Amino acid sequence: MTETVAAHRQAGHRVRLEWGPTGAAAVAAGADIAVVVDVLSFTTTLTVAVERGITVYPFRWKDERAAAHAAERDAVLAVGRFEARQGQAGVSLSPSSLTTVEGVERLVLPSPNGSTIAFALADSGATVVGASLRNAGAVAAWLAPHVAAGATLAVVPAGERWPDGSLRPAVEDLWGAGAVLAAMQAVLATGRPVDLSPEARMAARAYADVAGTVTEALLACASGRELVDVGFADDVRTAAEHDASTVVPVLDGEAFVAGA
């Protein structure tokens, strides 16, 4: 491993942060816990589902094996927001729509960013947790004793994709990651200082900038504006419900369940 690659792993810090699937693989290497943050899609929908007692299986986006993967687990396969709007039956990636779904016990929930990252991290050796603004405080409280005991933490804002498939760092995921880190620092304030990498500290500071105006900030940011413009404002508002949930989705084997 070259010196540059080692530096990008942020291995000198116990709390690390990096973007997207490539960044996840880098900072989760050797980490005890990996926190995936995908505020306007996967992890908010995941939190809503787990709140409702649904077991959620992450999976890669647009993988032709998804239907078989769901069938083998006697699970419902979720579709994308736009597929649902075009008349495809079933559950979608829309978090607001999932608040009223009934009769679903197991759900395969593919997404291009958060779910794909979580699926890839399943075999990393790290405990994988799903975080969003809706459950940031609960995740922070769950993480704090682990970090206080010496656990290494990798936080992964998922980001979005440009049309050419390249990573688009998305400010809402930075805020979500920062909300978790800021709350965790507050819980641990009476103990030893938490060793955050500069990247992780930057996320906590970014969240502090919008902490009092989260809904307005989400509705105004590029990703939020995109959803509002195509009729999914309710999803943005659901994602902005800061600390509305006390559930902590933890990947147990191949499925997310509520963490103890």
Rank of each mutant, 00 (worst) to 15 (best):
Y57T: 06
F42W: 07
R106L: 05
T2M: 06
L196P: 10
G87V: 03
V230A: 01
D74R: 00
H242K: 01
M184V: 14
L181W: 11
A138T: 10
N113R: 08
A211I: 02
A258Y: 07
S111M: 07
L188H: 05
D234C: 04
A182K: 08
W175Q: 01
A260H: 04
E241N: 05
T100D: 11
A67K: 07
L93K: 01
G125R: 07
T55M: 12
G87C: 03
A126M: 15
V129P: 12
Q185Y: 09
T99D: 14
Q88I: 10
W175Y: 00
T2P: 04
L93I: 01
A89K: 14
A177F: 04
G191R: 06
A154N: 09
A200K: 09
D164K: 15
V35N: 15
P169R: 12
A206W: 03
A89N: 11
A29G: 13
I117E: 08
E226H: 04
A24G: 08
A31H: 15
G176V: 00
S245E: 07
A154T: 15
G30Q: 11
Q86A: 04
P145A: 02
C221N: 01
A84M: 10
R134F: 10
G130S: 12
A25V: 04
V156Y: 14
V180L: 08
F82G: 01
F256W: 11
R85H: 05
S92K: 02
W61Q: 06
W19T: 04
M184W: 07
E216N: 12
D234R: 10
V5I: 13
A28F: 12
V230M: 04
D123W: 14
A7N: 14
D243S: 02
V155M: 14
G90P: 03
A84V: 05
R161E: 02
L109S: 03
S115N: 12
G137I: 03
F82S: 05
T47K: 08
G253P: 13
L93S: 08
D164T: 15
V236M: 02
P249G: 10
T44M: 02
G23P: 14
F119S: 13
R168D: 07
T55I: 07
G259A: 09
L196W: 06
N135T: 14
I33E: 13
A239V: 00
